[in-house]
Structure formats: structure tokens, C-alpha cells
Design a protein around this nucleic acid. Structure first.
Length: 449
DNA sequence: CTAGGGTTAG
């Protein structure tokens, strides 16, 4: 009862303490109190503690039920520890429990959200596996897969799953349509997205604010601001209320289009509508003002954030680093990294890549290479963007040998060059009077385009 | 116990 009470009052730490003490006294708790505790630990992302409690339960002979295993599997999936999650599935079988639809859904979602090649192949294989074991996928299974394929920029695969779902007699819901509409919007297929919205209306499903946000985002990314705004005005007509995300999407679109006055007007509208701007709102506006060189306005917004005690996040810092770099003040930007460590926001790959790009623009390749060393000391390995930045910098300095060396190095490390890599090298070759032979082959190196 | 929308770099 004590453990449960603490969990219900969001005092997970005390719940853990009570759980430990119960063990010290030799009381054997049950899944009844352990499961909710595990759930809230998963929600808080405290996966280490989840693993501790799980092991402790086994040690103390507290009998887990199907939910216990599913909760632990979900926790491990959420932090990308898929291998460990699979191990728990084995534990579960050893205890005489068969993985349920929920177990499979959880695992499939884990693979879908994992950043690895062939992840969707693995997710699809799990679907086949569950079907072969006569555990039938439900609406949630299909929604997870559809969203996974959409996020993997494979809308056609998502559409196939959508059809399969209907073949199996399952009705797509608002979530299903939202995932597909979002996928289509992200790949610029706006007509098809609008078509699906109509289809969903025909099926008696009402588009929600998420549906509108996806559509507005689609039009915004295509710089079709008028259409985006019209959709925004439809929201009220449908009796829905725009969310922070609706406003942020539109504000960002206007900032990127250099329409700062409109962006600011939207923020006023936001305040009038009782929607509170968050860090992302400020980030969009600050990046917008820096983009048009209005340092003063950007500074004011930063101060405003402080007044509202809204904390700068990693993105805010990345914007500031970028702004300084673009002003050819990369040294100052470098000092910002120290501040980031101080406030407990460790620089990300983006931060380091941005700074390297800044040094390269100033022609200071040495400094850029030093940043790379610093980054790797932080345990962050150079990624494709890192190489792109450095290769570009070296090319512009005429240091082709070194650039080529880095290109080889990235290939040796198994990093796949992207379109930008290809364009940097191609441009360099053309300038030097070389003719790239066929698309995909540059300097005799095979490049995936 | 499982599923959805926005923000930075290249």
C-alpha cells in the first residue's frame, strides 16, 4: 500500500525506498504494487532503476505477471536497448508466459523508433512472426507499423500496410490517418494528403488538431504560406483550438520566409488565444531574427525568455553558436560551449558541426580539426555532417589531398556519404576541370546518392 | 502493459 501510494503521488523515489525497505524486512511484495512502480519509472526514463527492480523482483521471488514483463520490455525499447528487451522476452517464456499482442506491439514500436538501417525490415519480420504464432495484430500494431514506415520516409510501404490492415477487417482510426497524412506531408505529397483527409471525413472520422498540424506543416515546408494560413483559419471553423505546435509551425514558416512581422503577429495571436509560447516558439523567432541580421531583436527575445524563466535548451544554444559563426565570430561561439557545459547542456553533434563549419568559413581549418578532436574526446564520433563540413573546408582551401583522405576515412568507417557530400566533391571536380564520370562515382569512390 | 503533431547543423 505504501509503495502504491507513493507512486500515485508521483513520489517514485520514495516508492523505491519503500520497496527496498520491504525487502530488508523480508516482506514479499506483489506485482500489484511493483507494476505501477515500474510503469512510472519507465515514464521517467529511469531505465537503470527499472532493471534493478526487475532483477530484485526475481531475486525476492516476487511473481511477475505478463504486465511486469511487458512494462520492462517497453522501458528497454524506449531507450533503444532492443537486445536486452529480447532477453526479457526469453525470461518471460521461461516463466511460462507467451508474448502477447502487446509484447509484439511494444517490440515492433521499439524497432520502428530505433535509428538503424533495416529497422523496418526487422519490424516487419516481427509482424510475420506473430502472425505465424497465431497472435493476431490489432489496430495498434498496424498504426505502429504505418507510422514507422512514414517516419522512415517510406510512405508507399506505409500505404501497403494500410491496405493490409483493411484486408484483415480492421478499421483505420484517426491515428492511422494522421500518421499517413503526416508521412505524405513530410514527403511533399500534399494532394495525396488532402485526399486522405477527405477519405477520413467520408469514413465518418473527424480530423483533429494533430491532423491540421500535419497539413499545416506540409504546406509550410513547401513555402505555401497562404494555404497554411487558410488551414489555420479552418481550425476555428471546425470548433477546434490551435495548439502550441500549430502556432510554432506557422511562426517558424514565417520566420524562414523572412516575414518576421507576421511571425510576431502570430505570437500575439497566440497569447490572446491563451496558448503559452514555449522554448520552441522562442527558438523559431530567435533563429528568424538572427537570420535577417537583427541581433538586437534576438537579444531582446533571449532576455524575455529569462524574465519568463523559460530555460534555453540545446536548440537555443545551437542557434546562438550558429549566429556567432555566421558573423565570423567562431572564437566567441567556442566560448559558448563552455557555458553549455556549465548549465548542464552538453554540446551535441550539431553544436560541434556548426562550430567546425564556422571555423572553416573563416578559413581556420586547424581550429576546425581541433574541434573535432575535442568532440571525439567527449565520446562523440564524427558523423556524415562532420565529414561534409571538414571536406568542404579543405576543398575551399585547395587542400584536395587532405579532403580526399577524409572522404576515404569516412567510407572506411562505414559512414554513407549523402547528397551534400556528393555535391561538395562534384563541385570541386568541375572547378578543377574534371568531369565526374557517372553519377555515383567520384574519384573512383562509390557513393550512394 | 502497446500507437499520432512542432524547434537547430550539413
Amino acid at each position: 500500500m505504501l509503495v502504491l501510494a507513493y507512486v500515485k503521488n508521483s513520489r517514485t523515489d520514495s516508492a523505491i525506498e519503500a520497496f527496498k525497505r520491504a525487502g530488508d524486512y523480508g516482506f514479499r511484495l506483489s506485482a500489484l504494487s511493483c507494476n505501477p512502480m515500474l510503469s512510472s519509472l519507465v515514464k521517467d526514463g529511469k531505465i537503470g532503476v527499472v532493471e534493478f527492480v526487475y532483477k530484485e523482483m526475481i531475486k525476492r521471488r516476487i511473481e511477475p505477471d505478463v504486465c511486469t514483463f511487458n512494462i520492462v520490455i517497453n522501458g528497454l525499447c524506449k531507450v533503444g536497448k532492443l537486445q536486452k528487451a529480447e532477453d526479457v522476452v526469453e525470461d518471460m517464456k521461461a516463466w511460462g508466459f507467451s508474448p502477447s499482442v502487446i509484447t509484439y506491439n511494444t517490440l515492433i514500436d521499439g524497432y520502428c523508433k530505433m535509428g538503424r538501417a533495416a529497422k523496418m525490415y526487422k519490424a516487419d519480420a516481427l509482424l510475420k512472426e506473430m502472425e505465424s504464432k497465431k497472435i493476431y495484430p490489432n489496430e495498434i500494431t498496424f498504426n505502429i507499423l504505418i507510422d514507422g514506415f512514414c517516419k522512415d520516409e517510406n510512405v508507399s510501404a506505409a500505404m501497403e500496410v494500410f491496405k493490409e490492415m483493411q484486408r484483415q477487417g480492421l478499421k483505420p482510426g484517426v491515428l492511422t490517418y494522421n500518421s499517413l497524412i503526416n508521412g505524405l506531408c513530410s514527403s511533399g505529397k500534399l494532394d495525396e494528403a488532402l485526399g486522405l483527409r477527405d477519405e477520413m471525413l467520408g469514413a465518418g472520422l473527424k480530423p483533429g488538431i494533430v491532423t491540421y498540424n500535419a497539413l499545416i506543416n506540409g504546406f509550410s515546408k513547401k513555402k505555401m504560406l497562404k494555404e497554411a494560413r487558410e488551414l489555420f483559419d479552418d481550425i476555428a471553423k471546425e470548433g477546434l483550438a490551435p495548439s502550441v505546435i500549430t502556432f510554432n509551425t506557422l511562426i517558424d514558416a514565417n520566420c524562414k520566409a523572412g516575414r518576421m512581422d507576421e511571425a510576431i503577429a502570430l505570437r500575439s495571436l497566440m497569447l490572446d488565444s491563451g496558448v503559452c509560447p514555449n522554448v520552441a516558439t522562442y527558438n523559431c523567432l530567435i533563429a528568424g531574427f538572427y537570420g535577417e541580421g537583427n541581433t538586437e531583436a534576438a537579444r531582446n527575445l533571449l532576455n524575455e525568455m529569462k524574465d519568463k524563466s523559460l530555460e534555453s535548451d540545446l536548440v537555443t544554444y545551437n542557434i546562438l553558436v550558429d549566429a556567432l559563426c555566421k558573423k565570423k565570430e567562431s572564437r566567441k561561439a567556442a566560448r559558448l560551449l563552455d557555458e553549455m557545459f556549465d548549465v548542464g547542456l552538453g554540446p551535441s553533434h550539431i553544436t560541434y558541426n556548426t562550430l567546425m563549419d564556422g571555423y572553416c568559413r573563416e578559413g581556420n581549418i586547424r581550429a576546425a580539426l581541433n574541434v573535432r578532436t575535442q568532440m571525439e574526446k567527449e565520446g562523440k564520433r564524427a558523423n556524415v555532417v562532420t565529414y561534409n563540413v571538414l571536406i568542404k573546408g579543405l576543398c575551399q582551401k585547395g587542400k584536395l589531398e587532405e579532403a580526399n583522405g577524409l572522404l576515404n576515412e569516412m567510407l572506411e568507417k562505414g559512414l554513407i556519404p549523402n547528397r551534400t557530400t556528393y555535391e561538395i566533391v562534384r563541385e570541386e571536380m568541375l572547378e578543377k576541370g574534371f568531369v565526374p564520370d557517372i553519377e555515383g562515382h567520384i574519384y573512383n569512390i562509390s557513393v550512394s546518392s
